[in-house]
Nucleic acid binder design. Structure first.
Length: 492
RNA sequence: GGCCCCAUCGUCUAGCGGCCUAGGACGCCGCCCUCUCAAGGCGGAGAUCACGGGUUCGAAUCCCGUUGGGGCCGCCA
């Protein structure tokens, strides 16, 4: 049988790291098994759902290159034979109501007239008495007269599911193995809200069944919901899908990942200059691994190697340091053109508008490729090629106050001005020759030249940098440095 | 508070009864390379496998308990 899995986000915000990981694992599982990856929108929270969130989630999924075969598509159209795929649309079609009424008729569900306030009071009381906060199920066995009375009071009922009083609900989780719950501890959850909208635990069962899902892959914060849902399948006489509960993603301190751990939304990582390949690879390793602990995967390799048996039961901490290292790895794998393409948008923040048909621009952006960890930092490392440099105090003190500094810079200026073929090989040879014939150590010459042309003590490989800067510019910058040194020494 | 889940270097993980004096990766330290910083190469420190009981000739691996962490207990999903 062909596998069918789904990612079912609730559009109440951006796609966050945990959601993206769930989406990724479903996607990888579908790819690996040759199945279908469905996208369903769970917008049954009338207050918090927004189309803006849907757009944002889709945009992050597109960035991660997570394409789905069926469901609500990026342009909000519907694709597939099991639609609509947006729960609000399904609600207006009366899909949930239909099954709720069936359960009502069979006595497997009932109307509850309790108000939110009454429920809160009951829960509080239970907490005080240190009992489980399982509701009193006050409306479970209402007489016709009582129902009449509540109706007369104009109360708007909700529909609750009638949980079995005894027995156990067990399931074989694909990751956690045997999981068992006592039915008497389960509560009569609300299936249909007073507004007529279904709740998550109900809508999800109806849709997963109707959409013929074979596997439910989701976060293990849903383990406690599973027995509730399993009882609905049973009451409806349906065969439930297989479940696989993924471990949670935690912050470095072991607490649930939240804003205070830094960025949690995928959009934020995109903005900071992570490559989508990095995110995908890193997320895949959070709660999953291969038998040889592989850490970098080539394109298409995850799709080929992913399996549920490699999934971890224990939670994983999100490590920004390792993420940054991995991004560096991926940046290093880029061709010059790809790097330029990827870094382009981030360069604009530095006021740099470069031209990819200009080979010099391509070379400059790639000159420190092995050093980049974030696309967002490329600009700060290469902007000196295009802007006037300034020399700060510490740099001057460190390098430009060495003995013979004027002699060195003047000599280098002359040497460079005499080079006709201004490329790194020639520049390097001439620079070394200058040092040797004048009795200077290489470093004695290299360091001040670096500072003169770049304003920094550390940077790209020196002679390439000089080549890319160009003869005129280099001489101009050496002159500027020289005048700075002279001004400083006359002041004293 | 009730129920459920989880537990191998700081972190991600390999391990699925003997191959483990526990392997890899990130990070950290040292050396090499070298025009700086990186990258790369080599090496090192780092886990009595949470703890305590079993089972077994033999346990990180199986069982029980304890502790710790996490999740759920919403007319949120």
């Amino acid at each position: 049988m062909k596998t069918r899995v789904r990612f079912a986000p609730s559009p109440t915000g951006h796609l966050h790291v945990g959601g993206a990981r769930t989406a990724l694992f479903n996607y990888l599982f579908a790819k690996k098994t040759g199945g279908t990856f469905v996208l369903r929108i769970e917008d049954t929270d009338e207050l918090r759902s927004s189309e803006e969130s849907i757009k944002s989630i889709f945009s992050s999924m597109k960035w991660l290159d997570l394409k789905w075969d069926e469901g609500t598509m990026p342009d909000l159209s519907e694709k597939g034979d099991f639609g609509p795929y947006m729960q609000s649309k399904r609600e207006s079609l009366g899909i949930y109501k239909k099954y709720a009424e069936q359960l009502l008729k069979e006595g497997k569900a009932y109307y509850c007239y309790c108000s939110t306030e009454e429920l809160d009071a009951m829960r509080k009381k239970a907490q005080l008495e240190k009992r489980s906060s399982k509701d009193e199920d006050r409306c479970r066995n209402l007489s016709a007269a009582q129902i009449e009375e509540f109706r007369g009071q104009g109360r708007k009922p909700v529909i609750r599911f009638r949980m079995p009083d005894d027995g156990q609900t067990v399931f074989e989780d694909l990751i956690h193995k045997h999981v068992k719950f006592e039915n008497k501890l389960l509560y009569d959850f609300i299936m249909i809200k007073a507004s007529g909208y279904p709740t998550y635990n109900f809508a999800c069962v109806i849709d997963d069944h109707l959409m013929e899902m074979t596997h439910i892959i989701r976060g293990d914060d849903h383990i406690s919901n599973t027995p509730l849902q399993l009882n609905v399948y049973k009451a409806l006489g349906w065969q439930p899908p297989l479940h696989a509960h993924l471990s949670m993603i935690l912050g470095q301190d072991g607490a649930r990942l939240s804003k205070r751990h830094g960025a949690t939304s995928i959009a934020e990582y995109q903005k900071r200059g992570f490559l989508p390949e990095t995110m995908k690879n890193y997320l895949a390793l959070l709660g999953w691994g291969t038998s040889d602990s592989q850490d970098i995967f080539k394109k298409g390799e995850l799709e080929e190697k992913f399996n549920l048996s490699g999934c971890q039961k224990s939670p994983a901490a999100f490590d920004h340091v390792k993420l940054a290292w991995m991004n560096g790895e991926y940046i290093r794998q880029l061709s010059k053109e790809e790097l330029f393409e990827a870094a382009g948008p981030y360069l604009k923040d530095f006021g740099l508008v470069l031209d990819k048909s200009n080979p010099r621009h391509l070379d400059i952006v790639a000159i420190e490729q092995e050093k980049y960890k974030l696309l967002g930092e490329v600009g700060s490392l290469v902007e000196f090629f295009f802007k006037d440099v300034s020399y700060d105090e510490s740099v001057i003190n460190k390098t430009l106050k060495a003995p013979d500094i004027e002699k060195i810079l003047n000599g280098i200026k002359k040497t460079y001005s005499e080079i006709s073929e201004f490329n790194d090989v020639v520049i390097e040879a001439k620079t070394r020759e200058f040092a040797k014939t004048n009795g200077f150590k290489n470093g004695q010459v290299f360091h001040p030249v670096r500072v003169s042309v770049s304003g920094r003590t550390q940077g790209p490989t020196l002679f390439k940098m000089i080549e890319y800067l160009g003869k005129d510019e280099v001489i101009k910058r050496i002159d500027k440095t020289l005048s700075l040194i002279i001004t400083q020494s006359t002041q004293k």
